[in-house]
Design a protein around this nucleic acid. Structure first.
Length: 224
DNA sequence: AACCAGGAGAGAG
DNA sequence: CTCTCTCATGGT
């Protein structure tokens, strides 16, 4: 079977192709850090389209703020975020998270300045798993961690012909971060490009013909 | 009309 | 540690 080697050179080549096609992504799509953090929780196993509706619901009530959420009732949070699904859990998670940050650090900026082990601390809050924590670290804290999600696994699996779908979160993360320079700007835009690629071409029925990676993709090579 | 979406946690084995 | 279930709405 034809297989593109997973190497630093090929990863960066893929990134350049994506960026050339899609342009710099300017992620995360949020106006403030608080909004980014809230979006990270809302998007858990949920399409971004639905998350946008929930964010708009919060915006209309002036609730896109950790301090406001920390002081709001569960019922009022729930009613704002219903379109994003899992709204009972997510309301609880938003309030828990917000209360923790506000009570211990006052603001997310202080959290990133003062926390000695921010990743570990985020994971300890509850309702914050690997992907959500890493998204927060990278996109709100500008800390160089590569975010792994379902898209990243699917694309790495197809392009490089590796069984990344079965690999654990940390295995894939260590693999990618071991190959790339530790650059928050690169990790930021690279992950955003992968999401863009997945949304457009790398679905269950891939449209490889127009995929910017078709020339360097094992999956595509195998089909011809 | 089934199937999926930028996950996480609890429980079972 | 690895599976399986649950949480829930909205688009295709």
């Amino acid at each position: 079977m034809l297989c593109i080697k997973l190497s630093k050179e090929n990863l960066l080549r893929a990134y350049r192709l994506l960026r050339k096609r899609f342009g710099f992504q300017h992620w995360w799509p949020a106006k403030t850090k608080d909004e980014m953090l809230i979006g990270a929780i809302l998007t858990q196993n949920t399409s971004w389209r639905n998350v946008e509706k929930a964010i708009e619901g919060l915006r209309q009530k002036n609730m896109l703020s950790l301090k406001v959420i920390a002081g709001s009732s569960l019922a009022s949070i729930q009613s704002s975020i219903r379109p994003s699904g899992f709204y009972r859990q997510k309301a609880k998670r938003l309030k828990q998270f917000s209360s923790y940050i506000v009570a211990n650090y006052s603001s997310i900026g202080n959290f990133f300045k003062q926390s000695k082990e921010p990743r570990k601390e985020l994971l300890g809050i509850g309702g914050i798993g690997n992907e959500t924590a890493d998204s927060m670290l990278l996109y709100a804290g500008n800390i160089p961690v590569f975010v792994i999600d379902a898209y990243t696994k699917r694309i790495l699996g197809r392009v490089f012909g590796i069984g990344s779908e079965k690999m654990s979160y940390e295995e894939v993360q260590n693999l990618v971060m071991g190959l790339l320079p530790r650059d928050a700007g690169l990790f930021n835009d690279f992950h955003a490009q992968l999401v863009e690629l997945a949304k457009r071409y790398c679905k269950k029925n891939p449209s490889c013909g127009e995929c910017p990676l078709s020339n360097v993709c094992s999956y595509h090579a195998e089909k011809k």
